[in-house]
Amino acid sequence: MTTLSCETPETQDHAPALMKILERHERRRDRLIPILQEVQEEFGYLPEEQLKAIAAVLDLPAAHVFGVATFYTHFALEARGKYVVKLCDGTACHVKASIPILEALQKRLGLSDRKKTSADALFTVETVACLGACGLAPVMVINEEVFGQMTPQRAVELVDELARKEGGAP
């Protein structure tokens, strides 16, 4: 009589890949950051659908999940290019002229500080604060590969090379 039915709605069909990640973390709320990291790994970025699903399964307000996802710079809420070029603008790299490299790359790919992903969705160019390889400043990372002692010219060449490999026009 005074009891309530207590099934929580669990019927939604979330992406199996997502559910696997959530199960691996035992649906723990304090694992939100690693969960987001793995979801980003899986989907390339954090799609809104997945964030909502995470919120629903972890029983967290969606605004909270959104708030966490937008706090950390590693989380991307929009799809990124196939190649993510991270140019270091940490102190060591900055004093060794990393900005001209950034400018050259942006010019080559038609990007700006606001527009970070090229129209063909091949390249995303971002800056990061120190990759911890300052001895090789200026440093650039393409996906996981680290390139040291960069120059604007070499950076553009690397991008050209990848573009050629992808069969894209310059």
């Binding site: 709320r29 950051i33 990291q37 966490v68 706090f71 950390y72 590693h74 989380f75 990061v128």
Partner: peptide, 26 residues
């Protein structure tokens, strides 16, 4: 071993703990 997610302020101890707890690193 927990991996951060890109926030300098998470080096500050209370922010770091918030981050471990799954919150914004404030």
């Amino acid at each position: 071993v927990m991996e951060g997610a890109g926030a300098f302020v998470c080096g500050e101890e209370t922010a770091l703990m918030a981050s471990i707890e799954g919150l914004r690193g404030m």
